[in-house]
Design a protein around this nucleic acid. Structure first.
Lengths: 234, 234
DNA sequence: GAGGAGACTATACGGCGTGAAGTTTTTATA
DNA sequence: TATAAAAACTTCACGCCGTATAGTCTCCTC
């Protein structure tokens, strides 16, 4: 009957997918707090314990979700990056940054899941979650810096970072992909990321409400100043 | 018999203080998730329900804690600001920023409480929490911009923000204190804040781990570039 | 010393994650 | 095809949580 290895595994995969999908729906509806095994099971007409056949623990489910959502973010910014391949460095950086913010605003719960305290008592299992997607986003910000680097003002290049200032972790793995990027360039990548993250996370967590009515304008101004501070000559 | 209004109220105030203190201790120990009425009561040799005599609900307790912690942060940055009153704008900005980061690193749970998803199902009651402390921190960042403004490069002044781009909320109340600060200056204040917040929150939430081994250096470099990008002539 | 207010406990409900044991359904094998 | 194994799923249970209701005890006041 079915394909290789039979239909048992197909059903299993479908159920696994449904669990994740229902969990994401619950998150979109009621925030990350709404991700409970019992609620998911209720929604699926199952018992909460049945989920343990698919995920060893609730935190493992959450980790999987983080991976899933993180991948969606990586897809979004990668797509924007690819589409702007013909543009100059300043435009590419702006495009990437806008894609990042647009995704975050469209998926605020996902953003919280990735970058905030995800879910009530969540503890990331060994090695932390989402290494693949994190690697991709990390590659993205390194690509930003790599694109800008040849055009960047000398003040950025003057900073005295060493290779030893960076972990062998994510950036260490990303590094070989950008042979032209020196330590100061990696530092620049992190700082660009932080600038974008700062504004977006303030907006997502509502700390800009009560401050400004036009976060778009503020973000665009920040992009103008970011590109300007890089010293890129257009 | 105690002072005005008797000792009954004094005991009450002491118990209230102890509840908050125990809650903060639990938070420091086991993270924001550890703030549970039952755990607090256990620690105090009481019943969980006894706490309802002091706080109407768990969220009200959390709101109070946020206020408390937020005030501590405001105290820290205000103190740094006051101490640097004799310095130039660049130094004052750096001093404030360092105080912000130092406080955050010393009180990571507090930082999460203020700027992240505080506690499992927490919903801020009407009006949101911590208006006073938020006002003070808001005043702080406005003061940063106000100090920098007269020395700031023309590119920042050129941005076309209007008064109508800002809420009547926090910044609206802060505005009168800085009559020399135009709309573009308020925008600058928010952007400076966001830059600092971005780097610090990435660090607090562990997203810089696996990236760099020297967040200090990265932060200092960001300060150098921040001051530089402001165009302040020293 | 009687009344009342305030502080606290007891009990209970529903929701949570999860462990242990049991039941039903499907698959693989003799 | 009959049967044993494995997988899927349920039931029951435990301890945690916030919180509502009702009851108890203690102290202050008149």
């Amino acid at each position: 009957m079915g394909s290789t290895q039979g239909r048992r595994e197909r059903l299993r995969a479908e159920t696994t997918a449904e669990i994740k999908q229902v969990a994401l729906k619950l998150m979109a509806t009621g925030g990350p707090d709404a991700i409970t095994l019992r609620a998911i099971a209720r929604e699926m007409g199952m018992t909460a314990n049945a989920i343990y056949g698919y995920f060893a623990t609730r935190d493992e489910l959450v980790t999987t979700l983080i991976n899933e959502v993180y991948t969606a973010l990586a897809d979004a910014v990668d797509a924007a990056w690819a589409e702007s391949s013909a543009a100059g460095p300043a435009d590419r950086i702006r495009t990437w940054a806008r894609a990042f913010r647009v995704w975050a605003l469209a998926n605020p719960e996902g953003f919280r899941l990735i970058y905030g305290d995800p879910v009530p008592g969540y503890q990331a299992p060994e090695g932390g979650p989402a290494p693949d997607a994190a690697y991709r986003v990390c590659t993205g910000i390194a690509a930003l810096a790599d694109t800008a680097w040849p055009h960047v003002g000398h003040s950025h290049a003057a900073s005295d970072f060493q290779w030893s200032d960076f972990d062998d972790g994510l950036l260490g793995k990303v590094r070989p992909a950008f042979p032209g990027l020196p330590p100061a360039g990696l530092a620049l990548a992190l700082r660009i990321w932080a600038r974008l993250h700062g504004l977006v996370s303030l907006e997502i967590y509502g700390h800009l409400r009560g401050q400004t009515v036009s976060p778009d304008k503020l973000f665009e101004e920040e992009l103008v100043q970011l590109v300007r501070s890089l010293g890129i000559r257009t």
